[in-house]
């Protein structure tokens, strides 16, 4: 196994954090397969509050599946998965909903609702999760969210009228509008130009600082990873093949890991 135990001190702080209730996500021996395909073999991961964790890995290694497990969209086969102190696989529907209220999820393809306008797309999570929101508050939240991603003018358009990058940014706005405790980003900058990518990366950082959100970011964009990651893990063959800070991994002796940073 290529696991880099770069600093033994980090294990100690992890334990401290756990005692202080600062561990947000905890995975132990997580396993998931689809039919005969074993996607996640043995994932062990602890994520602390306020941390920005970046997940790297080749296409098809199960990065999206991993974060879908966290919101309960994909059921894990084996292992322990504790989110905000609650074991996901033991939760009843109602409790799962409560957990989901605290989690934002940016889907890889944006998952915009085609049958709703941009405004309605943003209002949907608000209406669904906050239940009774005054119209004014809703309006200002929607406008603020759109301004954050530079889409203020698109408010009355339909998703089909947006460009690929705009769709991505709208997806991001829809996820951020509720200011969740945990943010899961599935490739937030893929398909965007370098300038917008950078803006999005800064936005993610800003959100994290402002609301002390915990973020998990799947990305292939090394510039983005460099900017936002406190810690990076590399998935390979269903396990965390490497773990460490940006500089740790960049200077890794392993040529395969280094190849991500070229």
């Amino acid at each position: 196994m290529r696991k880099m135990t770069a600093n033994t001190t980090s294990i100690k702080t992890e334990n401290d954090n756990k005692q202080n209730g600062l561990v947000v996500v905890e995975m132990e021996h997580l396993k998931k397969s689809f039919g005969n395909i074993l996607v996640l073999r043995d994932i062990n991961l602890v994520i602390n509050k306020g941390e920005n964790l970046v997940i790297l890995g080749k296409s098809g290694t199960g990065k999206s599946v991993l974060i879908k497990c966290i919101v309960g969209l994909v059921e894990v086969d084996e292992g322990k998965l504790v989110i905000l102190g609650q074991n996901i696989s033991e939760l009843k529907n109602k409790e799962l909903i409560e957990i989901r209220k605290k989690i934002g999820f940016l889907f890889q393809g944006g998952a915009l609702y085609d049958s709703m306008t941009v405004r309605e797309n943003l209002e949907f999570p608000l209406k669904r999760q906050l239940l009774s929101v005054p119209k004014d508050t809703m309006n200002s939240l929607v406008k603020e969210a759109l301004q954050n991603v530079g889409l203020a003018k698109a408010i009355d358009l339909w998703p089909s009228e947006l460009s690929g990058g705009m769709r991505k940014r709208l997806g991001l706005a829809r996820t951020l509008i509720l200011k969740p405790d945990i943010m899961l980003y599935d490739e937030p900058t893929t398909g965007l130009d370098p300038i917008t990518s950078k803006e999005i990366s800064h936005l993610i950082l800003e959100v994290q600082k402002k609301y002390n959100t915990t973020s998990i970011i799947i990305t292939h964009d090394i510039a983005c990873a460099k900017l936002i990651a406190n810690r990076i893990i590399v998935l390979k063959d269903g396990i965390c093949a490497a773990e460490g800070s940006y500089t740790d991994l960049k200077n890794s002796a392993d040529a395969w890991i280094q190849s991500f940073f070229e």
């Binding site: 969209l73 989901r100 999820f105 609702y113």
Partner: peptide
Amino acid sequence: AELASMNVTEQIDAMQVSCT
């Protein structure tokens, strides 16, 4: 067709995440 395309583009999953 509508539900199938919502399924393909993960809109159904997105609803679930939005507590619907």
